[in-house]
Nucleic acid binder design. Structure first.
Lengths: 264, 264
DNA sequence: ACCTGAACACCGTTCAAGT
DNA sequence: ACCTGAACACCGTTCAAGT
């Protein structure tokens, strides 16, 4: 959560060197079979089952049959464990082949990233910064994202910008989905909505009040109406991705026009 | 962080009724001057100065000269306090007039939201779900966002989609900015980059490796090079917003064309 | 009605000690 | 080299008690 990252003697954060397998493993003396791989796997299992809050050093250790303090020989602290968990959780599958058309390719790349985070939504609660970007799964995802855009007449720097924007859209949508689910499907009842109508008046909120009244701002479907109202944000996800792709098409047209101009 | 939101007897989450001033305040008996307003203000002051992690019930209480437990008379728990803090922190200024052109209007609306979160970046660490959407500052922001789009020939539901996508772009960019700053400006040195080059090879990562080599994937500027290398993501912010707006322009053209078709 | 004191069941992390 | 036990300095929240 907090504070600077202390680099190793190599100049890289320890989580990065560990994840890439650059860390020398001391191997003399007794070995009771603990390792970061096992620790990370156990932690992920707990997070999947009970959420990230349930991942305490004690819970991880006891699930492996060791004491809490034994973990500190393999992991510098909880922060490093979280980073390693995140990296392991959001790995995109190997050996995927993307469609030829860049629009389809970008869409399926976004879908892969989305699926990865949806599979382990707690990974979103772990901050993603420069360190995350250097971790294997992030590097792999970036490489695949650039592959999706390889036919585009844009320079690499701009392509990096595109995959950043798209992945931010994907992750923030999944995050919102998760938050909505956490709060329960119906945070607001019919009578609650009426009460809100008294403070969210057309006078104070001229543009929003009608929308609220019409009902398609909030989900007021009662719980347990046959189908489990999944609160999926598929429509919003697709809509945003479509906007970005349409904007990108325009950008490509602009660039192509400029090249044609220069030729003339 | 966790779990369902328990609604009040009104059918609304308590944080919502408190924020809108719907909660009856018991006023008989002695009053030593504590209130949620004062508690929230004190908590925000701490968060601004020392980060959200420093906001403990004890820290807030002692900063006000009360014991920890006194807070529980005004606030149902830390969760509610956090929601109230978030709402108070990200309020968009009253009395703003947006430009007439919807592109400019949308851009300045996004700028207002961005400024609000940048002013209290810890607000991003507090989950935003359905409850947040019902809080005053969020309602106000949504109303203003719809105002920005009032000239657009799209239905309200789609406009809500647009402001959702834009605000997600804004918040995720600010969040990334924050995470980068937290990790310190230079997480990776020149020699660290060389070490990474040994695992991030052109064979394994054909598209990313050249980009990494070229250096415009990571910020490798040494710390203290005169100007404080702010790690601002202004370029990425603008680029994403431009893409969305360009996509929206296309969408408007499509809709207009369809209307013209129908007329013919 | 408002505030307090003591207690409960937790955290992550350190350090010296065992084998 | 690997693991343990005890301890430290914290959390949020409860409950009964004071005024």
């Amino acid at each position: 959560m907090c504070g600077m990252v202390e680099p190793t003697e190599t100049g890289l954060p320890r989580a990065v060197t560990v994840a890439w397998g650059m860390q020398e493993v001391s191997q003399r003396g007794p070995n009771r079979g603990l390792s970061h791989e096992r620790i990370v796997a156990a932690a992920i299992e707990i997070a999947d089952a009970e959420g990230l809050a349930a991942v305490t050093m004690q819970a991880v250790a006891t699930s492996l049959g060791f004491t809490t303090m034994s973990l500190y020989r393999y992991v510098s602290g909880k922060d490093e464990l979280l980073r390693l968990m995140q990296d392991a959780a959001i790995a995109v599958p190997e050996q995927v082949t993307l469609p030829g058309d860049w629009r389809d390719a970008l869409r399926s790349w976004a879908g892969l990233v989305r699926a990865a985070f949806r599979g382990h939504p707690w990974a979103l609660e772990i901050p993603r910064g420069q360190v995350s970007v250097l971790m294997p799964s992030s590097v792999r995802a970036a490489d695949l994202g650039l592959a999706a855009l390889r036919e585009l007449p844009l320079d690499d720097e701009e392509k990096v910008g595109v995959i950043l924007v798209v992945s931010q859209h994907v992750t923030s949508t999944v995050e919102l989905e998760l938050n909505l689910a956490d709060e329960g499907t119906v945070a607001v009842s019919r009578e609650g909505l009426d009460l809100l109508g008294e403070v969210i008046t057309p006078e104070r909120f001229p543009h929003l009040a009608p929308v609220l009244q019409a009902g398609h701002f909030l989900d007021t479907r009662p719980a347990g109406d046959g189908v489990e109202t999944e609160h999926g944000l598929d429509a919003e996800y697709d809509y945003g991705l479509d906007l970005i792709i349409a904007g990108l098409e325009q950008r490509v047209r602009d660039v192509s026009a400029r090249v044609a101009d220069d030729d003339a």
